[in-house]
Design a protein around this nucleic acid. Structure first.
Lengths: 191, 191
DNA sequence: TTTTGTGAATTGCTTCACAGCA
DNA sequence: TGCTGTGAAGCAATTCACAAAA
């Protein structure tokens, strides 16, 4: 391995970085095709774009956010978005006093009324939405989003969303995260 | 199965609810001991408390929160905490203008200075902490918490925290969640 | 009967080991 | 020599199938 030449990377290096065996890396990558060259390794640029293609991160996804409360504001200020190819396209809230306010951290964006959801989703071909509203409002918001054509929901409300089978939901449940953590802490203690 | 008598539950019922096979349920539960009765099933109360004991959710965990920005405020207002046996015990921030402010949603709590972390962690036997500070501050906050004796970190900052092996870290990475979601949306389309 | 708990069979995943290419 | 891709081996998780208990 020559650290000066990092146009290629070996399964050994990747494995060390990801804490898995080199064979695991090779098996996993081979599943999607043949990217590497024997004796050389994987071309970093080629591998990066292949993985992007596989994961669907080779395109920019328009994302909308519903809920301009504390959580919504924190999320819209989150910098990791753009870096991973997600563009916060619009923010919605049903509180009239919040509509029209600028969105901190995203120049040129202001909070829109919920009635605009349908129009924006269609116009900008939005497929992903973040639900950051109180629990009691989450289901009806989800239904509005699905009706508008959204296919993936990232749900921060502590409720189960009922959606059609062709819509993906990923829930961020703080309590579950903490439970997992407390379980790990117990296990560590009894080692 | 008699729905009127739900003092017991069978592996079949549990499996249907959790979308796994009844055998899986029995194998998993048997790993921790013998809770069930042949011909009857599992006593709901007994099973519940056994699972609580196994997962460590039979006690109340004191949790502290570092960072009283938008995200921190959203998290402290989160209701699911207490329901799952977690008690938000204190909130810290290094911004002097925030110190002393009341914490919305948690009566009797006010934002404390970072210097108090050591004392509070020791006094209240805190083992879990939530890191809700900007990325650039996260590592030093993590080190302070670990030094104070915290054994589990729930990290919302978009950085990898470097901690000793006996400390558990669970990261909530918005970008990763969105990536998974976009992947699912792609897959659904090609079905 | 109904349903558990568990050996045995099976499936699936991971690692080994090596042929073949650069 | 260095490294990939992959068949074969090894291991772990899941499912099957049934004795035993209620």
């Amino acid at each position: 391995m020559r650290t000066s030449d990092q146009r290629t990377v070996s399964s050994k290096q990747l494995g060390a970085a990801l804490r898995v065996t080199p064979t695991q890396i090779r098996k996993d990558l081979a599943y999607f095709g043949q990217f590497g060259q024997p004796g050389i390794g994987y071309d970093v640029n080629e591998l990066t774009s292949e993985i992007r293609r596989i994961l669907g991160t080779d395109r920019t996804w328009n994302v909308i956010l519903v809920g301009a409360g504390n959580l919504g504001m924190a999320l819209s200020a989150y910098r990791g978005f753009a870096r991973k190819g997600f563009k916060l396209s619009a923010v919605f809230d049903d509180d009239p006093s919040k509509v029209g306010r600028p969105v901190s951290g995203v120049p040129g964006l202001q909070v829109l009324s919920m009635q605009e959801i349908g129009r924006i989703v269609e116009e900008r071909q939005v497929r992903l939405a973040i639900v950051a509203v109180p629990a009691e409002a989450a289901q009806s918001v989800a239904e509005k989003l699905v009706a508008a054509g959204v296919k993936g929901l990232l749900n921060f409300a502590p409720v189960n969303l009922n959606v059609p089978a062709d819509v993906a939901v990923s829930a961020v449940d703080l309590a579950v995260q903490l439970e997992q953590l407390s379980f790990q802490v117990i296990c560590a203690r009894s080692d």
